[in-house]
Design a protein around this nucleic acid. Structure first.
Lengths: 179, 179
DNA sequence: CTTGACTCCGTAGTGTACTACGGAGTTTAC
DNA sequence: GTAAACTCCGTAGTACACTACGGAGTCAAG
């Protein structure tokens, strides 16, 4: 059985040497046996696995998700419906991102179209819109990707009352300046 | 002239207190004068500026880009064409992202559709495709967002020969396993 | 033998955009 | 007065996915 060094496996797997060690630390690939020198000795299976990882990344899966897929791959009770469900969830995720990007693009394109070009910046409708001033109110604030960041952090659990109060007002509610 | 504390300006600007200090460190907002206590004293202008930042973020601009827009806003020689050009560039950037996401979605949707559902994972066409095996070759590898990461790092300049050698082979070229 | 490429390790760093902390001082409402 | 909320600061940490380093040992080709 042909043995591969880490450099070889990196080359055939389409990643860097450092990345291999990183994936090992993250549990995406197994630590292989070593030579007396301490050099890692891989088989072709690791190359296959690395290519799986790259392809899954290309489809938008995160390393955590890929790790789960890899586990399911060898789980005896798994059937294809489970994998399918994850792929469907990823499709929905991607669709959401596309929607957000489409909204951004549309708003930006409108701003570009409203711009007469050769006027001073002080009269620029794009800047006016960003400033929230100008003749028409462009609803920029409902466009962006400002979703709550998931922070699975022990320390945040003690501050959850603050988060609850904010959430109750709608995620993007900004108070009006007092006059 | 009404003065605002950092908490007030955060509330009206739609960001957190920590974020304000972060923006100050990054140069997105100016450090304001202080009270004797050391407390920051803001004006309404900072609220306006924070809202500008949020709206620009909603449109997909990075903080660095927003900083530049904010500079252009007060630059006497700027005309609107300059702002327009940046907005157009962002539209193109977003279009590229949408394209990539569409390709991902299509590939995933095809995989989902090819899945019979209730078969063992060992016969799953999704996993087969990710593994690069199976009856038909799905071109996953041309889909993803694997662009070269810009790493403006002094230290990388000494290793540029390695990068050059890799680039010359096409960004996604992976050697074939020897048989 | 020599030299250059490669390998090892654990830490630190990159980029992006925040967020939290600890301990101390200040402000505000009851 | 008291207590809670607020402010300060600089550092460290989050998430994500890598990437580089330094110094020492190993390997392979000339």
């Amino acid at each position: 059985m042909k043995q591969f060094s880490i450099g070889e496996v990196a080359r055939y797997g389409g990643v860097g040497v450092e990345t291999i060690r990183f994936y090992e630390r993250e549990g995406l690939i197994a630590e292989p046996p070593r030579k007396e020198s301490g050099y890692r000795q891989y088989t072709q299976e690791t190359v296959v696995r690395l290519r799986f990882i790259q392809r899954a990344k290309d489809l938008g899966f995160s390393l955590r998700e890929i790790k789960e897929l890899l586990s399911l791959r060898i789980e005896p009770l798994t059937d294809c419906a489970d994998i399918q469900e994850r792929a469907e969830a990823k499709v929905r995720d991607i669709e959401g991102k596309i929607q957000t990007l489409q909204r951004m693009k549309k708003a930006l394109a409108n701003l570009v179209a409203s711009c007469p070009g050769r006027v001073p910046a002080s009269d620029c409708p794009i800047l006016d819109a960003l400033e929230g001033s100008g003749a028409h109110e462009t609803p920029i604030s409902a466009i962006g990707q400002r979703t709550a960041k998931k922070r699975p952090n022990d320390r945040s659990s003690m501050k959850s009352t603050t988060a609850s109060r904010r959430a109750g007002k709608g995620a993007n509610h900004v108070p009006t300046l007092p006059r």
